[in-house]
Nucleic acid binder design. Structure first.
Length: 893
RNA sequence: GGACGCAUAGCUCAGCCCGGUUAGAGCGCUUGCCUCACAUGCAAGAGGUCCCAGGUUCAAGUCCUGGUGCGUCCACCA
């Protein structure tokens, strides 16, 4: 006989069961298996990643749905893996090298990349191990990495395809440049930070000496790259100057004054300096007017030869010097404090420099159209739905995506140049010779691709695309994507575009956007705030099951998630409750046959049928909630069934029959096991470890054809088709519970010790015709109420009996409940309780009556509603009368 | 500058889509209990102008409009 210890030991259970599940191959996906499919890909964490609460939440929700679907018999695939995370990983290894006093340039490209691979071999699995500790039931045999040969082939393939279709191109353009990372960035990798600065007003003299124009700028140092000054065409102040030249101070160059309607005459001086080489607006305007583009900085953000005397200075130093020099020349008119948003590198916070550079781009618009349509027509649906607006607004306004990065760690762009004739070739395989001149000396593009380029292919590249694998055939499109809103643009949108482009199908049918995890003060968890909670630590403290349950329980759609110790402790207490209920059940199975024979339906008492019906209700509601991705409701419903229905009521009611021998005992045992089995299966997706541990001890008693050896692959429960509990019986149990609660409330009011037995009486208030029926019903639940309310005697009062002889009473809608007062009881307490109740009832009665007296209500409200109100008002009036009567009696005594 | 979200008990949140029982839960608090599964527990109790102002309706925590407060995202106006 298996036994359960006094307390649950999460740690050993977690290690033990996870290993068993893996060893037995339960999480392995088999594309050849028939049946409905559920597939999902993990958002690949960065190889450099450390488990944080966002991951923990994400993985928990994945696992809840994956385990549910697996148990429901779906052919289930949860695809795991990691992302090579270009900049992040390269930075980590570069920092490591820096400690040795070296840079990546000391090693050279090949050796550096080898070093990063080495780092990845050593540390890259860490994050996945952490996910495993959470119980993630991925098919770990299918782990993928975005730089794996297979996935790299997919990257090359799609790159070449898009290039040939003209959707990828190479061009000299203004891009976001991080001078610290020394690479181009996409728009998305630039954060905008509100920064206090100045607006400098600089006087630009006209070349013919006939005056000057004052321009306002936040970046005086870029004047060295100015190629025009622009004013609004209708601005009378400047009309006469149009076409004239300006002698650009500090750097001897003449630039034109041009007119452009984009200039806002009301801002600054109404004249704006145009620097196409260092400003996105100016770049656009420069193109319209065919202005030259001058780059005045190098890749480190230092001034270059074009900056003349300022060559070699940093951007910041140059700004200071330029302002000083202008002041000295008397050309600085004034400076005003000015708040503006400065673009910074999302990786290192360095101020981004818009820079002219040769880069590779994806033409996004044509791809976006299909991706927009797919969500509009419902091929893919977001949950909650409102995130679709976010998706739409971004998709509708996309610019071309800069995909080249000047890094070493990543997918090297498959473009080759002929060293002899300069011809460029884009091809999946390195060409042997130049297609144009036949030269054999080819040089591959140095740049690598944006990490998100390969991430965009994840849902199908992991399944073997472009090969037509059984996996791709079976599991694509995937069923669901679970991720945070912060990467809707980075990842979700791009997967949609690439998925549709490459496969003609959406990559996933549903997208569930998780809430954002915050600390107990409601603040976003960030490293800089220092409020990051380490999930591994709380898993140590509360147990993984409790952490998972808490996260699921707090996953409300469309809201942030605030994790608090209180909630975690409550979940741990819940795990403990389940554990102890299991101990109770097992303890009472001693000597029972294995498996337990099912009792005859007639052998089941009211309580047995009631709890079985409740279980079915809970099963239905939990399943439905999971189907709707309402994880919080699913968790809460399971919780309330287990604690408040099964433990609070059925376990207590089972104690008596369990003490008997024979049929009643056998029936109670069977019901206990059946319910427990059902609730463990229901709870397993949320709390896999404790449920498996308990289920193993229960398993020998189960009688099910083809019973699974482990809960992880057991069948998810479904409600029984035939109702086991009639509506009259359900109502009977409701009355039993209500009467019990009323008696307990009176016990407490009367100051009885919890263990003390009391005299109690119930007086039915229904009509005379219903009395006999009620008496029959009462006989059925009387023992339950007697047990739960610890009565010495529980009787019925006749219609004319006065319940109040020495008793204190409470009034329910359908009955009066009386409990004998102990000797020397101070009736003042009872009187004030009665008065309070009377006040409440009176207030409500008045509300109802007012409504009934309203002629509009009578004229317009639905007849059923009126009848309902009528009834309720009558009931309340009746209660009022009784309460008044009792109050009088009490006052008399 | 646009857009979105949230506001219900001391705290953290359900309920609102689809208007109608005396608005719920967990934690915390108060009172009494180590009652033979569980003190990580049991029983009882206190605690709520459902942010404000209008509107729609016979009826509003629930629907609409405006406001306030908090939070978030997007944005190449110097």
């Amino acid at each position: 006989l298996l036994e359960l210890g006094k307390t649950f030991d999460p740690k050993s259970a977690e290690e033990h069961w996870f290993q068993r599940w893996i060893d037995l191959g339960y999480f392995k996906a088999d594309p050849s298996r028939l049946g409905p499919v559920f597939s999902i890909v993990i958002p690949p964490p960065n190889v450099t990643g450390q488990l944080h609460l966002g991951h923990a939440l994400n993985v928990t929700l994945h696992d809840v749905i994956v385990r549910t679907r697996r148990m429901q018999g779906y052919n289930t695939l949860w695809q795991p893996g990691t992302d090579h995370a270009g900049i992040a990983t390269q930075n980590v290894v570069e920092r490591e090298l820096a400690k040795e006093g070296k840079s990546r340039h000391d090693l050279g490209r090949e050796a550096f990349v080898a070093r990063v691979w080495q780092w990845r071999e050593t540390y890259g699995g860490r994050i996945l191990n952490q996910l495993r500790r959470l119980g993630a039931s991925c098919d770990w045999s299918r782990e993928r990495f975005t730089l794996d040969p297979g996935l790299s082939r997919a990257v090359t393939e799609i790159f070449v395809r898009l290039y040939r279709e003209g959707l990828i191109y190479r061009a000299l353009s203004l891009i976001n440049w991080c001078p610290r990372c020394e690479t181009a960035l996409s728009d998305l990798e630039v954060d905008h930070k509100e920064t206090p600065g100045y607006l400098w007003y600089i006087r630009y003299p006209l070349a013919d000496g006939s005056g000057a124009v004052t321009v306002a700028t936040t970046r005086p140092e870029t004047m060295l790259g100015d190629t025009a000054v622009a004013v609004h065409p209708d601005d009378l102040r400047y009309k006469a100057m149009l076409g004239k030249k300006i002698a650009l101070p500090l750097i001897e160059r003449e630039i034109p004054i041009i007119a452009d309607p984009d200039v806002d005459p009301a801002f600054g001086s109404g004249a704006v300096k145009i620097t196409p080489g260092h400003d996105f607006n100016d770049f656009q305007m420069g193109r319209r007017h065919n202005l030259p583009q001058i780059s005045v900085m190098d890749t480190h953000g230092r001034m270059n030869d074009e900056a003349g005397p300022y060559r070699g200075m940093t951007r910041e130093d140059c700004r200071t010097r330029v302002v000083e020099d202008l002041t000295a020349l008397g050309l600085l008119e004034k400076m005003e404090p000015h708040q503006h948003a400065v673009g910074v590198c999302s990786r290192c916070e360095t101020v981004v420099e818009p820079t002219l550079s040769n880069q590779w781009f994806v033409r996004v618009k044509p791809l976006a159209e299909e991706a927009l349509a797919a969500v509009r027509d419902g091929r893919t649906t977001f949950h909650p739905k409102r995130w679709e607006n976010t998706y739409f607004s971004w998709m509708e306004n996309v610019y071309d995506w800069c995909i080249s990065r000047q890094l070493w760690w990543g997918h090297r762009i498959p473009a080759y140049w002929c060293e002899r004739c300069g011809e460029m070739m884009v091809a999946a395989e390195r060409p042997a010779t130049c297609v144009k001149c036949g030269g054999g000396d080819l040089r591959q593009e140095e740049d690598v691709l944006d990490t998100w380029f390969s991430s965009a292919l994840w849902p199908f590249s992991t399944l073997g695309w472009p090969a037509e694998t059984p996996e791709l055939e079976r599991y694509y499109p995937t069923s669901l994507l679970i991720t945070g809103f912060d990467i809707i643009f980075f990842w979700v949108a791009r997967m949609m575009m690439m998925g549709l482009k490459c496969t003609g199908q959406v990559p996933f049918r549903d997208v569930y956007i998780t809430p954002l995890v915050r600390d107990q003060f409601g603040k976003k968890m960030t490293k800089s705030r220092g409020n990051v909670v380490d999930p591994l630590q709380i898993m140590e403290r509360y147990g993984t099951d409790a952490v998972r349950f808490t996260l699921a329980q707090l996953s409300v759609q469309g809201r942030d998630l605030i994790l608090s110790d209180d909630r975690l402790a409550a979940s741990r207490a819940f795990a403990n409750k389940v554990w102890n209920a299991a101990r109770f059940v097992l303890m009472n199975l001693e000597g029972a046959p294995q498996p337990l024979p099912a009792p005859a339906a007639a052998g089941l008492g009211l309580a047995e049928r009631w709890i079985l019906a409740s279980l079915d209700g809970a099963i239905g509601e939990v399943s439905a909630a999971i189907d709707r991705y309402e994880f919080n409701l699913a968790a809460l419903r399971a919780y309330s069934f287990i604690w408040h229905e099964f433990c609070d009521w059925y376990i207590e009611l089972a104690k008596e029959p369990l003490k008997q021998d024979g049929e009643r005992q056998a029936a109670a045992r069977w019901v206990l096991v059946r319910c427990f089995d059902g609730l463990l299966r229901l709870l397993h997706p949320f709390m896999p470890f404790i449920t498996e541990e308990i289920w193993q001890t229960l398993r020998p008693y189960l009688d099910e054809p083809g019973l699974a050896p482990h809960l992880a692959i057991a069948k998810f429960p479904v409600p029984q088709a035939q109702a086991v509990l009639g509506p009259d019986e359900a109502a009977a149990m409701e009355r039993c519970i209500a009467a019990t609660e009323a008696i307990n409330s009176l016990r407490s009011l009367l100051g009885y010790h919890p263990g003390q037995r009391v005299e109690a009486r119930i007086k039915f208030l229904g009509g005379d015709d219903a009395v006999a029926e009620f008496h029959a019903e009462f006989e059925r639940w009387k023992p339950y109420a007697a047990t739960m309310a610890k009565t010495a005697s529980l009787g019925l009062a006749g219609p004319s009996d006065n319940t109040t002889g020495g008793m204190v009473t409470a009034v329910l809608g359908w009955c009066e409940v009386g409990v004998m007062a102990p000797e020397g009881f101070d009736f003042d307490r009872a009187r004030s309780a009665l008065r309070k109740k009377l006040d409440e009832v009176t207030a409500h009665h008045r509300q109802h009556q007012a409504r009934l007296d309203n002629p509009d209500f009578v004229a317009k409200a639905a007849p059923e509603m009126q009848e309902q109100m009528q009834q309720r008002a009558q009931e309340l009036a009746g209660q009022q009368d009784l309460l008044r009567k009792q109050l009088r009696l009490l006052e008399a005594s």
